[in-house]
Design a protein around this nucleic acid. Sequence first.
DNA 1: TCTGAGTACGTACTCGCGGTATGCGAGTGC
DNA 2: GCACTCGCATACCGCGAGTACGTACTCAGA
Lengths: 232, 232
Amino acid sequence: MLRSVSKSAVSKLVPKVPTVGSRRAAYSASTKRALIDVAEQLFTDHGYASASLDQIVAGAQVTKGALYHHFSGKQALFEAVFERVESDAARAVKGALRGHRDPWDKALAGLRAFLEVVQEPRYRRIVIQEGPAVLGYERYREQEERSTFANVLDIVKSVLAAGKWDLDEAMQQTFARIFFGAMSSAGEAVSSSDDPIAAAVRVETAIGFILSGFQALVENDVALPNAFHVVE
Amino acid sequence: MLRSVSKSAVSKLVPKVPTVGSRRAAYSASTKRALIDVAEQLFTDHGYASASLDQIVAGAQVTKGALYHHFSGKQALFEAVFERVESDAARAVKGALRGHRDPWDKALAGLRAFLEVVQEPRYRRIVIQEGPAVLGYERYREQEERSTFANVLDIVKSVLAAGKWDLDEAMQQTFARIFFGAMSSAGEAVSSSDDPIAAAVRVETAIGFILSGFQALVENDVALPNAFHVVE
DNA sequence: TCTGAGTACGTACTCGCGGTATGCGAGTGC
DNA sequence: GCACTCGCATACCGCGAGTACGTACTCAGA
C-alpha cells in the first residue's frame, strides 16, 4: 500500500478519513477499511466459505501480508464485518424508536424498522445466516446482546412496565428472546418471499395482532404465574 | 470394507440391518450408516468446517473411496445427517401431539416436546446453528418445511380454526413462521442457559401467556385486518 | 537534514483438506 | 465357474488458509 502502483489507488480513499493522526495512520486506516468493505461484499455475495482471502485482498488491491497485519485471520475479518453490519442495523432500529412515548407505538415502530433492516442482503447473510456458524453461537450471542437484541430488550421492558407486573430480569430476557426470535424468523420469511412487501404486511398484521392480545392481558393485570392455566 | 481388517469391524454392525437383500447390500448399508453415525458425532462436536473427511472416514473405519461412493461430497453427507436429526426431532414432536383434542393443549404439548428436542446438542448444532449456513437458506427451508415446521403449521392451523376467522394459506404460514422462530430462539436460550430447567419453565410460562392472550382474541372473534389499530 | 527504529505492508512458501482418477477383489447372476 | 458389476482402497491433485521473512516507507529525535 505504501508502494508505487497501489499507493495511488488508496490515496483516493484517504479523504474519507479526516487524516486525524499522521499520513501513515490514515493510509493504514484506509487499507483496513478497504479490506472490510471488500470482505463485506464478497461474504454477502458468495458466503464465508466461498469467499477466498485471495479474492478479498485482490479486491482491496493489497496482499495477504496487509490482511494478516490488520487481522489475526479470516474469522477476525469476518467478525469486523459482522460488527459493522450489526451496529448499522442497531442504529437504524434505534433511530426509528425515537419520538415514541407510548411503548406499544414504540414496539410497532421497532418492528417496522427491523423488517426493513432484515431485508438487506448483507444483514440476512452475514448476521442471520452465517453469523452463528462462523462465530460460534456463544460469540454470536455476545455481539447480538449489545446491539439489535438490546433494542428488543429495551422495547419489551418498556412494554412490560406498562402493566402492573414486577418481572425479574430473567423473565424479561425470556420475553425479549421470544420476540427477537419471532422477528428474525419473520424477517427471513419476508426477505426470501416472492413479494416482500405483501409478506411484510402480513408479518406486521400477525405480530401486531399477537401484541394486541398481549397488551390486553398486560393492562388487565392478569396474574402471570397462572397464565398457563388461564388457557384451560 | 469388503477387505481383510475392516471387514470384521463392519460385520458386527450388520445384524442391525435384517439382511433383506444380498450380503453385499447389507454391507453397503451398514457402511453408509457408519459414515452417517460418525459424521453426526463429529459435526456435532466440532462443527461442519472443523470436522475433516479424514477424521470421519477414520472413525467409520473406511476410506474416502467409500465416502465418495455413497455421497457426492461433504455437503451431501451433512445433508444426510441433517435429514436424520430433523426427522427424529419431527417424529418426537409429532408423537407428543397425539391424544390431544383441544388445539390449545396440543400447542402446549408441542411446545414442551420441542423444548426437549432443542436441548439435544446435535439438533442445536446441526439443524439450528449450521444448517442454514451449510445448506443455504433455501435448501434449509425446504427441509424444515416438511418436518418440524410442518408440525408447527399443523398446530397453528388447528388453533386458528378454533376461531371464526377464515385466513388464507399465506397468513397461516406467517403465523406459523412467527411461532416457529419464537420457539427456535427460545429453545436456543434454554439449551445454552446455565439452568436449562428453570429457563424452560420461563419459556413455557412466557409463551403460554402470549398464547392465552392470543386465544382470548381468537375466541372473541376480534376482526383481524383491524387488529393493528385495536392496539392504539 | 540525517538517521535509526518501527510500521505497514509484499513475496514466497508450507501444509491440511476436499475432491478425483483409477485399480482391484469379493459377490452376484447366469 | 465365469464374466461382470458393485463397493470399496490407494494414490494423487489443486486450492486456500496461514506463516516466515524481507523490504520500502514514515516519522521522531538529534
